[in-house]
Design a protein around this nucleic acid. Structure first.
Lengths: 343, 343
DNA sequence: GTTAGCACTCGACTTCAAAGAGTGCTAACG
DNA sequence: CGTTAGCACTCTTTGAAGTCGAGTGCTAAC
């Protein structure tokens, strides 16, 4: 749907004014904000049409207009100026994500916290999906006479460890056998190929040793499962209170939604583009019906992607936050790639 | 300060009624809740004295009474019935913390979440302090030609790992040297004795090898520092919205306070008893002036302690939540001790 | 010491009116 | 035909005034 240039100007002004103040915008206010040579009556006419088209709405008859979700959508898609990020903001973001010698989890956790502080929104990020990751290394660290810690390292730099308990006392030949199994069956293996079926054939092939090795092998498998799961890092939940009125009654639901990692990772993984904005009900989660999500995805070595995003009210400042989220996400992606390939 | 038996009855009734309803309690309401054979006028007289003594207050002249912090304190110290926990509640808690083969962090994180859900409050827990912990094991896992991962395991079961980068290509003699250093200087060493001074003398004693070993040694030291830090696990921040009115304007401050782990660990570490209740301004944190904290401490092998607690409004249900927090904390302590000694 | 009775206080809720913001419509204008 | 001035209309907000009711504090009597 195409709008006349004047309608676009008016829509943009309404959106921007409403984002700034949170108050419905009237025709006179618009008149002074707009450098158009028409009267308020004309603007009223235009606005009435924008209401009919579904881009604006009135809270009540005698109030100004506020954008509908469709209004925000049109604004984001067509009207929003994509001014490049200010150099000083770039510096700030660079400083915010810089952290050295850190694990991917720590990097993303810090990025979430920083992004939340910067945007006054709740921020989320997910670790790279383990779908295309392989097992890079498995180590066994004896801890007690019958227990040891198994450490698994994936090609995506994720480290998982788990204490595992043997039914009999450990001895060096057992450990040697374990490393042989690791070498022949686990190293280089894609995480998602380690399922119960492969595990069973593996155990079957071990013959006599099966019984003693089962705890170790299944621990490795557990760790692989765990490493595949994307983790969700949260930041700035307290910022939800900042826009409490905008969320209305969904504030509690929203906070509760953020607690549970799983739906968030689905939310973030849902979008196929490098970058995505979901406005209000556009995402199918009821808890987010009064919220907008701005998210971007990073890639590590091509195809392992994770996401970073912010969740705010629908009247979030799209124009200035979108570039920030994108820039930060790109930076984090680079940082992660670099950490990973830094051998 | 001693109160007459009748005053105690009245104070207890006011506290309990206010906790339940959140409404100021009047003399007539009290009359029906209390099985005392006096008139409402007598109760009024008693209440007036309780106000004078500082245990009750009136929001305004013509309203009922609500407890002051001192009132809650007297209630908790002298009046609250310490009924033993219901068997079904015990079962529920046992089910809530049960989790197998998990790290201390995972156990505590789960306990926090569960406690938050059960009590409708925000819940926090801290990992055991590393003060009396020693280094149990250090492993080096090569990752690339110049990088490797160092894994440190403490006597308290904490596992920390870190990628570390050498200035020259790794070879087996370097790794051997590293393990020798670990064996002679790190194993069994208390974490808090690894400071820059000891590190310097250690490096000095290495002579020729100092340069190549420095990255590894300092990584171990970093990990030791990290392992000493108590971590804070949070649960149920969203529950703050549940009692939003009670927190008044401090709701945001409270959430923000919860974000930062450091003050929380100070708060929890501050109390010397096995168990502690801080009511309103009793804890010196301004952000908590409208909140009460119920916390308990667990011990692992005698002296390594951590804490678990809940943070709610001052009109939190002390009588039923205190036993729950204690029971859960004891359980978690046992679980951690067991996990640790399960060699 | 306890109680009944009563005047009094003060917030909560309702009603009403006035103010103000903003609209939609109509008629006139270029 | 698009634009505009003018105006009646609608609906929220604000504040004042009034009522209600819960609850108190005090006094006088038991």
């Amino acid at each position: 749907m195409e709008l006349s240039q004047r309608k676009e100007k008016i829509l943009a002004a309404v959106v921007e004014h409403y984002i700034k103040t949170g108050e419905p915008v009237g025709s006179k206010t618009l008149l002074s904000a707009l450098d158009i040579n028409v009267s308020s009556a004309t603007i009223r006419n235009e606005m009435a049409e924008l209401v009919a088209l579904g881009f604006l709405e009135q809270p009540h008859t005698s109030a100004g207009r506020i954008p509908t979700n469709e209004g925000y959508r049109y604004y984001v898609d067509h009207l929003m100026g994509v001014r490049p990020l200010d150099e000083s903001v770039k510096r700030q973001i660079e400083a915010g994500v810089s952290i050295k010698n850190a694990s991917p989890e720590a990097i993303l956790a810090k990025a979430s916290e920083f992004l939340a502080d910067m945007t006054d929104c709740a921020a989320v990020s997910t670790t790279p999906s383990g779908e295309n990751a392989t097992i890079k290394r498995v180590e066994f660290v004896p801890v007690g006479t019958r227990t040891g810690m198994i450490v698994l390292l994936t090609s995506t730099g994720v480290i998982k460890s788990k204490v595992c308990r043997s039914d009999v006392d450990l001895n060096s030949s057992m450990i040697e056998k374990f490393y042989n199994i690791v070498k022949s069956s686990f190293l280089g293996m894609p995480l998602d190929e380690i399922d119960t079926a492969t595990l069973q054939t593996l155990v079957a092939s071990m013959g006599m040793d099966a019984l003693t090795m089962i705890p170790f092998v299944s621990a490795v498998s557990d760790l692989a499962q765990e490493a595949m799961k994307t983790m969700v890092m949260l930041g700035g939940q307290s910022n939800i209170l900042r826009y409490r009125d905008d969320y209305g009654t969904t504030a509690y639901e929203l906070m509760d939604f953020l607690r549970r990692g799983e739906p968030i990772s689905r939310l973030l993984a849902n979008s196929k583009e490098d970058f995505d904005v979901k406005i209000g009900g556009e995402n199918k989660f009821k808890q987010l019906e009064n919220s907008s999500v701005i998210m971007a995805h990073y890639n590590i070595d091509g195809d392992n992607r994770g996401s970073i995003g912010i969740i705010g009210p629908t009247r979030i400042d799209y124009a200035s936050l979108i570039p920030s989220v994108r820039y930060l996400t790109d930076l984090v992606g680079e940082l992660l790639t670099q950490t990973l390939n830094d051998d």
